[in-house]
């Protein structure tokens, strides 16, 4: 039998074998083990699903914050240099310089816990244990006047913590709120009588490559 013929036959056999297997699972991938899922599944939802057992106090959180976080976020959470502030900013959302901190903007405390646990400290992520993350979260909540200085945050009382701006969001409504952007027949000729230049990028002069841009703090 020629090589190509034997290949064709083998292929046909394979096809025949797999044809009725539409409902059957292809032998690709393997079962994820519970220990593997536990190692990677560290996400936490606003309803508390995913929180590990543990607790941490504002007091411990302050110590940890000074050790692990203050170099970038500032001793009072005000943010050092261009690093983001994590405290303050309340009442700033309508202003010219909104400051989006957990206290001023973030809707859910679970996001603080989840994010610190997965991504902080910057450059040494996933080095904090659950109790450390509870403590740092508690301290951030204290800094933003959501809890008192004696507060101890735990998986048991987590759901009771509400952030001030929880109701400050609505789902994408562009298709209704901006429906004027659809279906217009745009003007093509003599659309304006006068055109004025209102602003120049050069007035700010922050483009790299021309001159060094200013440091914005």
């Amino acid at each position: 039998m020629s090589r190509s013929r034997s290949f064709a036959l083998a292929f046909a056999t394979l096809l025949a074998a797999s044809a009725p297997a539409a409902a059957q699972l292809l032998p690709l991938g393997r079962a994820a083990m519970p220990a593997e899922i536990a190692a990677w599944d560290i996400d936490v939802r606003p309803d508390g699903q995913g929180l590990p057992a543990g607790k941490g106090s504002v007091k411990d959180g302050e110590r940890l914050f000074l050790e692990q976080c203050a170099a970038c976020h500032g001793e009072f959470g005000e943010g050092a240099g261009r690093w983001p502030p994590v405290a303050g900013g309340r009442g700033s959302l309508k202003s010219e310089n909104p400051e989006k901190t957990p206290g001023s903007y973030w809707p859910f405390a679970s996001t603080i816990f989840d994010y610190v646990r997965r991504a902080m400290p910057f450059g040494n992520a996933q080095s904090l244990g659950p109790d450390d993350v509870y403590a740092i979260t508690a301290f951030l909540l204290f800094m933003t006047d959501v809890v008192g200085e004696d507060f101890v945050l735990s998986n048991a009382n987590f759901a009771s913590v509400k952030l001030p701006n929880a109701d400050g969001f609505r789902d994408d409504d562009r298709e209704t709120a901006e429906k004027q952007f659809w279906g217009r027949e745009p003007c093509m000729k003599d659309c304006k009588t006068e055109v004025k230049v209102l602003g120049h990028a050069r007035a700010l002069d922050v483009t790299p490559g021309e001159k060094k841009g200013p440091k914005v703090d």
Partner: peptide, 20 residues
Amino acid sequence: WHQREETSKYTDLLADGRAR
């Protein structure tokens, strides 16, 4: 899940202080 990148970031703050 309301993760950091869909709450504190990648939400669109409007003039009235509320966000999409």
